Simulated assay, not measured.
Amino acid sequence: MASGSASARAPQVQDENPSCNDVASFKAADIVVQLCENRKPKPESENLPFGTVFTDHMLLIEWSREGGWEKPRIQPFGNLSLHPACAALHYGVQLFEGMKAYRGQDDRVRLFRPMLNMKRMLKSAHRACLPSFDAAELLECIRKLVEVDQDWVPHSESASLYIRPAFLGTESKLGVMVSSHALLFVVLSPVGFYFSTGNNSVSLWADSKYIRAWKGGTGDCKMGGNYGASIVAQCEAMKFGCQQVLWLYGDDHQITEVGTMNLFLYWINEEGEEELATPPLDGIILPGITRQSILELARKWGEFKVSERYLTMAELRLAVEQKRVREMFGSGTACVVSRVGRVLYQGENLQIPCGDESNSLVSRLLKELTDIQYGRTESDWTFLV
Protein backbone atom coordinates (compact mmCIF):
# COMPACT_ATOMS: atom_id res chain seq x y z
CA MET A 1 0.00 0.00 0.00
CA ALA A 2 1.82 3.13 -1.11
CA SER A 3 0.67 6.67 -0.63
CA GLY A 4 1.95 10.13 -1.24
CA SER A 5 -1.34 12.01 -1.40
CA ALA A 6 -4.85 11.96 -0.03
CA SER A 7 -6.16 10.39 -3.22
CA ALA A 8 -3.98 7.32 -2.66
CA ARG A 9 -5.02 6.77 0.92
CA ALA A 10 -6.06 3.38 2.19
CA PRO A 11 -9.81 2.69 2.32
CA GLN A 12 -11.82 3.88 5.28
CA VAL A 13 -12.18 1.49 8.20
CA GLN A 14 -15.82 0.82 8.88
CA ASP A 15 -17.20 1.61 12.32
CA GLU A 16 -18.60 -1.77 13.37
CA ASN A 17 -19.35 -0.57 16.90
CA PRO A 18 -20.44 3.08 16.92
CA SER A 19 -18.99 5.02 19.83
CA CYS A 20 -20.96 6.94 22.43
CA ASN A 21 -20.09 10.06 20.43
CA ASP A 22 -20.60 9.07 16.78
CA VAL A 23 -19.67 12.27 14.93
CA ALA A 24 -18.37 13.51 11.61
CA SER A 25 -14.59 13.30 11.22
CA PHE A 26 -11.90 15.91 10.86
CA LYS A 27 -10.31 16.19 7.39
CA ALA A 28 -6.60 16.00 6.61
CA ALA A 29 -7.11 18.52 3.80
CA ASP A 30 -7.94 21.14 6.45
CA ILE A 31 -4.67 20.66 8.34
CA VAL A 32 -2.95 23.84 9.55
CA VAL A 33 0.85 23.70 9.69
CA GLN A 34 2.93 25.93 11.95
CA LEU A 35 6.64 25.14 11.64
CA CYS A 36 9.02 25.76 14.51
CA GLU A 37 11.60 28.50 14.08
CA ASN A 38 14.55 26.61 15.54
CA ARG A 39 15.12 22.91 14.85
CA LYS A 40 16.61 20.75 17.59
CA PRO A 41 19.85 18.81 17.03
CA LYS A 42 19.19 15.20 16.07
CA PRO A 43 20.71 12.33 18.08
CA GLU A 44 23.06 9.72 16.72
CA SER A 45 21.26 6.65 15.33
CA GLU A 46 23.34 4.20 17.35
CA ASN A 47 22.33 3.31 20.92
CA LEU A 48 19.20 5.44 20.87
CA PRO A 49 17.24 5.10 24.13
CA PHE A 50 13.55 4.29 23.73
CA GLY A 51 11.08 7.16 23.95
CA THR A 52 13.23 9.88 25.53
CA VAL A 53 13.96 12.14 22.54
CA PHE A 54 11.17 13.85 20.57
CA THR A 55 11.03 15.55 17.19
CA ASP A 56 10.36 19.21 16.40
CA HIS A 57 6.61 18.98 15.76
CA MET A 58 3.41 17.31 16.97
CA LEU A 59 -0.14 16.85 15.69
CA LEU A 60 -3.15 18.03 17.71
CA ILE A 61 -6.86 17.67 16.93
CA GLU A 62 -9.47 18.89 19.42
CA TRP A 63 -13.12 17.86 19.67
CA SER A 64 -16.16 19.12 21.57
CA ARG A 65 -19.74 17.94 21.61
CA GLU A 66 -20.93 21.42 20.69
CA GLY A 67 -18.51 22.16 17.87
CA GLY A 68 -17.37 18.73 16.68
CA TRP A 69 -13.85 18.20 15.39
CA GLU A 70 -11.65 21.26 14.91
CA LYS A 71 -9.07 21.54 12.14
CA PRO A 72 -5.98 19.34 12.66
CA ARG A 73 -2.85 21.29 13.59
CA ILE A 74 0.81 20.47 13.14
CA GLN A 75 2.72 22.74 15.48
CA PRO A 76 6.01 22.92 17.38
CA PHE A 77 6.43 20.19 19.99
CA GLY A 78 5.50 21.40 23.45
CA ASN A 79 3.63 20.75 26.65
CA LEU A 80 -0.14 20.28 26.78
CA SER A 81 -2.44 22.49 28.84
CA LEU A 82 -5.03 20.41 30.70
CA HIS A 83 -7.67 21.37 33.26
CA PRO A 84 -6.91 19.92 36.74
CA ALA A 85 -10.26 18.08 36.63
CA CYS A 86 -9.49 16.49 33.22
CA ALA A 87 -11.24 13.12 32.84
CA ALA A 88 -8.08 11.47 31.51
CA LEU A 89 -6.22 12.38 34.71
CA HIS A 90 -8.93 11.28 37.16
CA TYR A 91 -10.74 8.41 35.47
CA GLY A 92 -8.33 7.04 32.90
CA VAL A 93 -10.40 8.11 29.87
CA GLN A 94 -7.35 7.64 27.69
CA LEU A 95 -5.95 5.39 24.99
CA PHE A 96 -2.94 5.28 22.69
CA GLU A 97 -1.33 3.53 19.75
CA GLY A 98 2.21 2.58 18.78
CA MET A 99 3.62 2.39 15.26
CA LYS A 100 6.88 3.14 13.47
CA ALA A 101 8.35 4.82 10.41
CA TYR A 102 11.38 3.14 8.80
CA ARG A 103 13.99 4.56 6.43
CA GLY A 104 15.06 2.08 3.74
CA GLN A 105 18.28 1.80 1.80
CA ASP A 106 16.50 3.70 -0.98
CA ASP A 107 16.11 6.60 1.51
CA ARG A 108 12.32 6.32 1.34
CA VAL A 109 10.29 6.35 4.55
CA ARG A 110 7.69 3.65 5.15
CA LEU A 111 4.98 2.89 7.69
CA PHE A 112 4.15 -0.75 8.45
CA ARG A 113 0.46 -1.76 8.12
CA PRO A 114 -0.72 1.56 9.63
CA MET A 115 -4.42 1.03 8.86
CA LEU A 116 -4.43 -1.85 11.35
CA ASN A 117 -3.31 0.62 14.01
CA MET A 118 -6.05 3.03 12.97
CA LYS A 119 -8.67 0.25 13.17
CA ARG A 120 -7.45 -0.73 16.65
CA MET A 121 -7.48 2.89 17.77
CA LEU A 122 -11.10 3.23 16.67
CA LYS A 123 -11.98 0.13 18.68
CA SER A 124 -10.28 1.58 21.76
CA ALA A 125 -12.09 4.90 21.23
CA HIS A 126 -15.46 3.13 21.11
CA ARG A 127 -14.64 1.33 24.38
CA ALA A 128 -13.73 4.63 26.06
CA CYS A 129 -16.81 6.44 24.65
CA LEU A 130 -14.55 8.92 22.88
CA PRO A 131 -15.63 10.40 19.53
CA SER A 132 -15.23 8.45 16.30
CA PHE A 133 -13.20 9.59 13.30
CA ASP A 134 -12.30 8.54 9.78
CA ALA A 135 -9.26 6.26 10.07
CA ALA A 136 -7.95 7.19 6.62
CA GLU A 137 -8.09 10.89 7.51
CA LEU A 138 -6.08 10.32 10.70
CA LEU A 139 -3.54 8.24 8.79
CA GLU A 140 -3.12 11.05 6.27
CA CYS A 141 -2.61 13.55 9.11
CA ILE A 142 0.05 11.27 10.59
CA ARG A 143 1.68 10.90 7.18
CA LYS A 144 1.91 14.68 6.89
CA LEU A 145 3.44 14.94 10.38
CA VAL A 146 6.07 12.33 9.53
CA GLU A 147 6.71 14.11 6.25
CA VAL A 148 7.33 17.39 8.11
CA ASP A 149 9.77 15.68 10.51
CA GLN A 150 11.14 13.07 8.09
CA ASP A 151 14.73 14.16 8.75
CA TRP A 152 14.27 12.60 12.19
CA VAL A 153 13.75 9.10 10.74
CA PRO A 154 17.11 7.44 11.53
CA HIS A 155 19.46 6.48 8.71
CA SER A 156 19.89 3.07 10.30
CA GLU A 157 18.43 -0.43 10.04
CA SER A 158 18.64 -0.89 13.80
CA ALA A 159 16.59 2.24 14.58
CA SER A 160 13.31 3.82 13.52
CA LEU A 161 10.92 6.67 14.27
CA TYR A 162 8.33 5.67 16.86
CA ILE A 163 4.88 7.21 16.32
CA ARG A 164 2.68 7.64 19.39
CA PRO A 165 -0.94 8.72 18.80
CA ALA A 166 -2.88 9.32 22.01
CA PHE A 167 -6.53 10.18 22.66
CA LEU A 168 -7.75 11.82 25.87
CA GLY A 169 -11.10 12.65 27.34
CA THR A 170 -10.65 16.25 28.53
CA GLU A 171 -13.97 16.81 30.32
CA SER A 172 -13.18 19.52 32.86
CA LYS A 173 -15.42 18.52 35.76
CA LEU A 174 -15.38 15.76 38.33
CA GLY A 175 -17.71 12.83 37.80
CA VAL A 176 -17.60 9.61 35.79
CA MET A 177 -19.36 10.41 32.52
CA VAL A 178 -18.96 10.50 28.75
CA SER A 179 -16.52 13.29 27.92
CA SER A 180 -17.93 16.27 26.05
CA HIS A 181 -14.39 17.36 25.13
CA ALA A 182 -11.48 15.34 23.78
CA LEU A 183 -7.96 15.77 22.45
CA LEU A 184 -6.22 13.53 19.91
CA PHE A 185 -2.50 14.15 19.51
CA VAL A 186 0.54 12.47 17.96
CA VAL A 187 4.21 12.77 18.94
CA LEU A 188 7.28 11.24 17.28
CA SER A 189 10.43 9.81 18.84
CA PRO A 190 13.53 8.29 17.18
CA VAL A 191 14.23 4.97 18.92
CA GLY A 192 16.58 2.01 19.01
CA PHE A 193 16.02 -1.33 20.77
CA TYR A 194 13.11 -1.43 23.24
CA PHE A 195 14.91 -3.76 25.65
CA SER A 196 18.34 -2.90 27.05
CA THR A 197 19.31 -6.51 26.25
CA GLY A 198 18.96 -5.80 22.51
CA ASN A 199 18.27 -9.05 20.66
CA ASN A 200 19.24 -11.26 23.60
CA SER A 201 16.62 -13.45 25.26
CA VAL A 202 14.47 -12.19 28.14
CA SER A 203 13.50 -13.94 31.37
CA LEU A 204 9.89 -14.09 32.58
CA TRP A 205 8.17 -14.28 35.96
CA ALA A 206 4.97 -16.34 35.68
CA ASP A 207 2.65 -15.92 38.65
CA SER A 208 -1.12 -15.67 39.04
CA LYS A 209 -0.85 -13.03 41.78
CA TYR A 210 -1.57 -10.24 39.29
CA ILE A 211 -3.96 -10.35 36.31
CA ARG A 212 -3.43 -8.15 33.26
CA ALA A 213 -6.94 -8.45 31.82
CA TRP A 214 -10.20 -10.35 32.24
CA LYS A 215 -13.30 -11.22 30.24
CA GLY A 216 -15.46 -8.16 29.72
CA GLY A 217 -12.57 -5.83 30.54
CA THR A 218 -10.36 -3.72 28.29
CA GLY A 219 -7.52 -6.16 27.60
CA ASP A 220 -8.27 -6.16 23.88
CA CYS A 221 -8.00 -2.35 23.69
CA LYS A 222 -4.88 -0.20 24.00
CA MET A 223 -5.97 1.73 27.09
CA GLY A 224 -3.40 3.47 29.27
CA GLY A 225 -4.81 1.91 32.44
CA ASN A 226 -3.89 -1.57 31.23
CA TYR A 227 -0.24 -0.56 31.33
CA GLY A 228 -0.13 1.63 34.43
CA ALA A 229 -1.66 -1.18 36.49
CA SER A 230 1.03 -3.60 35.30
CA ILE A 231 3.99 -1.69 36.75
CA VAL A 232 3.78 -3.26 40.22
CA ALA A 233 3.99 -6.76 38.70
CA GLN A 234 6.94 -5.68 36.56
CA CYS A 235 8.74 -4.42 39.68
CA GLU A 236 8.07 -7.71 41.46
CA ALA A 237 9.36 -9.68 38.48
CA MET A 238 12.61 -7.74 38.65
CA LYS A 239 12.94 -8.58 42.36
CA PHE A 240 12.87 -12.25 41.33
CA GLY A 241 15.62 -11.64 38.77
CA CYS A 242 13.31 -11.57 35.74
CA GLN A 243 12.93 -8.87 33.12
CA GLN A 244 9.27 -9.27 32.17
CA VAL A 245 5.96 -10.70 33.43
CA LEU A 246 4.30 -13.72 31.85
CA TRP A 247 0.65 -12.93 32.47
CA LEU A 248 -1.56 -15.86 33.52
CA TYR A 249 -5.35 -16.13 33.61
CA GLY A 250 -7.83 -18.49 35.26
CA ASP A 251 -7.46 -21.40 37.67
CA ASP A 252 -5.63 -23.43 35.02
CA HIS A 253 -3.03 -20.66 34.60
CA GLN A 254 -3.61 -19.94 30.94
CA ILE A 255 -0.72 -18.16 29.26
CA THR A 256 -1.89 -14.83 27.80
CA GLU A 257 0.73 -12.16 27.10
CA VAL A 258 4.34 -11.41 28.01
CA GLY A 259 5.04 -7.93 29.36
CA THR A 260 3.49 -5.64 26.76
CA MET A 261 3.82 -8.21 23.96
CA ASN A 262 1.81 -11.01 22.41
CA LEU A 263 3.25 -14.49 23.03
CA PHE A 264 4.14 -17.35 20.68
CA LEU A 265 5.18 -20.93 21.45
CA TYR A 266 6.97 -22.95 18.77
CA TRP A 267 6.95 -26.60 19.84
CA ILE A 268 6.01 -30.19 19.18
CA ASN A 269 2.49 -30.38 20.58
CA GLU A 270 0.76 -33.24 22.43
CA GLU A 271 -0.17 -34.90 19.12
CA GLY A 272 3.43 -34.85 17.93
CA GLU A 273 2.84 -32.00 15.45
CA GLU A 274 5.25 -29.18 14.79
CA GLU A 275 3.19 -26.13 15.78
CA LEU A 276 3.40 -22.38 16.21
CA ALA A 277 0.73 -21.45 18.75
CA THR A 278 -0.48 -18.18 20.26
CA PRO A 279 -3.46 -17.47 22.57
CA PRO A 280 -6.72 -16.58 20.76
CA LEU A 281 -8.29 -13.13 20.61
CA ASP A 282 -10.98 -13.85 23.18
CA GLY A 283 -11.30 -10.37 24.69
CA ILE A 284 -8.30 -10.41 27.03
CA ILE A 285 -5.58 -10.44 24.35
CA LEU A 286 -4.48 -7.28 22.53
CA PRO A 287 -4.78 -7.82 18.74
CA GLY A 288 -1.18 -6.96 17.88
CA ILE A 289 -0.22 -5.91 14.36
CA THR A 290 3.06 -7.85 14.60
CA ARG A 291 1.10 -10.84 15.96
CA GLN A 292 -1.24 -10.80 12.96
CA SER A 293 1.70 -10.43 10.57
CA ILE A 294 3.54 -13.40 12.08
CA LEU A 295 0.44 -15.58 11.80
CA GLU A 296 -0.08 -14.57 8.16
CA LEU A 297 3.58 -15.18 7.26
CA ALA A 298 3.70 -18.59 8.95
CA ARG A 299 0.44 -19.69 7.31
CA LYS A 300 1.73 -18.59 3.93
CA TRP A 301 4.86 -20.71 4.42
CA GLY A 302 2.70 -23.78 5.14
CA GLU A 303 5.61 -25.61 6.79
CA PHE A 304 4.04 -26.35 10.19
CA LYS A 305 0.72 -26.07 12.00
CA VAL A 306 -0.25 -22.53 12.99
CA SER A 307 -2.83 -22.22 15.78
CA GLU A 308 -4.63 -19.65 17.86
CA ARG A 309 -5.45 -21.70 20.92
CA TYR A 310 -5.26 -21.77 24.70
CA LEU A 311 -1.97 -22.74 26.33
CA THR A 312 -1.45 -23.44 30.04
CA MET A 313 1.59 -23.44 32.29
CA ALA A 314 1.06 -27.16 32.96
CA GLU A 315 1.34 -27.82 29.22
CA LEU A 316 4.44 -25.65 28.93
CA ARG A 317 6.12 -27.24 31.95
CA LEU A 318 5.49 -30.76 30.61
CA ALA A 319 6.71 -29.78 27.14
CA VAL A 320 9.93 -28.35 28.62
CA GLU A 321 10.47 -31.56 30.63
CA GLN A 322 9.91 -33.67 27.50
CA LYS A 323 12.15 -31.37 25.42
CA ARG A 324 9.33 -30.57 22.98
CA VAL A 325 9.75 -26.79 23.15
CA ARG A 326 11.78 -25.33 20.31
CA GLU A 327 11.37 -21.59 20.86
CA MET A 328 9.19 -19.11 22.73
CA PHE A 329 9.00 -15.42 21.95
CA GLY A 330 7.07 -12.20 22.35
CA SER A 331 6.03 -9.91 19.50
CA GLY A 332 5.16 -6.24 19.27
CA THR A 333 5.79 -2.98 17.46
CA ALA A 334 8.50 -1.85 19.86
CA CYS A 335 10.58 -5.06 19.84
CA VAL A 336 9.32 -6.83 16.65
CA VAL A 337 10.17 -10.27 18.12
CA SER A 338 11.93 -11.00 21.42
CA ARG A 339 13.24 -14.41 22.47
CA VAL A 340 12.27 -15.93 25.82
CA GLY A 341 15.11 -17.84 27.49
CA ARG A 342 13.75 -18.61 30.95
CA VAL A 343 10.41 -18.74 32.78
CA LEU A 344 10.28 -18.69 36.59
CA TYR A 345 7.11 -20.52 37.67
CA GLN A 346 6.25 -21.73 41.17
CA GLY A 347 9.89 -21.56 42.22
CA GLU A 348 11.11 -23.55 39.22
CA ASN A 349 13.20 -22.20 36.36
CA LEU A 350 11.96 -23.50 33.03
CA GLN A 351 14.82 -23.16 30.55
CA ILE A 352 13.51 -22.37 27.06
CA PRO A 353 15.65 -23.26 24.02
CA CYS A 354 16.44 -20.26 21.84
CA GLY A 355 17.48 -22.15 18.70
CA ASP A 356 20.58 -21.61 16.64
CA GLU A 357 20.98 -17.91 15.84
CA SER A 358 21.42 -18.57 12.13
CA ASN A 359 18.36 -20.75 11.52
CA SER A 360 15.94 -20.16 14.41
CA LEU A 361 12.32 -19.24 13.75
CA VAL A 362 12.79 -15.97 15.64
CA SER A 363 15.70 -15.00 13.38
CA ARG A 364 13.70 -15.92 10.28
CA LEU A 365 10.66 -13.92 11.36
CA LEU A 366 12.78 -10.95 12.37
CA LYS A 367 14.46 -10.92 8.98
CA GLU A 368 11.21 -11.33 7.02
CA LEU A 369 9.46 -8.55 8.93
CA THR A 370 12.35 -6.07 8.96
CA ASP A 371 13.02 -6.72 5.26
CA ILE A 372 9.46 -5.53 4.62
CA GLN A 373 9.61 -2.64 7.09
CA TYR A 374 12.88 -1.25 5.71
CA GLY A 375 11.86 -1.78 2.08
CA ARG A 376 14.31 -4.58 1.23
CA THR A 377 11.29 -6.68 0.27
CA GLU A 378 8.43 -5.09 -1.68
CA SER A 379 5.10 -5.58 0.08
CA ASP A 380 1.62 -4.10 0.20
CA TRP A 381 2.06 -4.08 3.98
CA THR A 382 4.10 -0.87 3.72
CA PHE A 383 2.76 2.65 3.24
CA LEU A 384 5.10 5.19 1.70
CA VAL A 385 5.40 8.59 3.32
Rank of each mutant, 00 (worst) to 15 (best):
T256Y: 11
P279A: 14
G347K: 13
L350M: 12
L295K: 07
A277Y: 00
R339C: 03
V337R: 03
F329S: 00
E271V: 07
E275Q: 15
K323Y: 08
V245I: 14
P280R: 14
E327K: 05
T260Y: 04
R299P: 00
M261R: 06
T333V: 09
E275F: 05
E303M: 07
V343K: 08
F304N: 00
Q254I: 02
W301L: 00
Y310T: 07
V320S: 09
Q292F: 02
Q254W: 11
I268G: 00
A298Q: 11
N349F: 07
G283W: 14
E308Y: 04
A334L: 08
K323S: 14
V320N: 12
Q322Y: 04
S293Q: 02
F329G: 06
H253N: 15
L265Y: 06
L316H: 01
P279I: 13
Q322R: 13
A298C: 12
E296M: 12
R291A: 09
M261K: 08
L311D: 05
I294T: 06
K300A: 14
A334K: 09
E348Q: 15
Q243W: 01
E321I: 11
M261H: 10
G347I: 14
P279G: 15
A334P: 02
E274T: 13
Q254D: 02
E273T: 01
G250D: 08
F264L: 01
Y310E: 07
N262T: 03
D282G: 09
G330S: 13
Y345D: 00
A298W: 00
V336Q: 12
E321P: 01
V306Y: 12
E273H: 13
T278R: 06
T256M: 01
G283E: 13
E303H: 14
L316E: 06
A334C: 09
S331G: 07
E303N: 15
T256A: 04
L246C: 10
L265N: 05
G288F: 04
G283P: 09
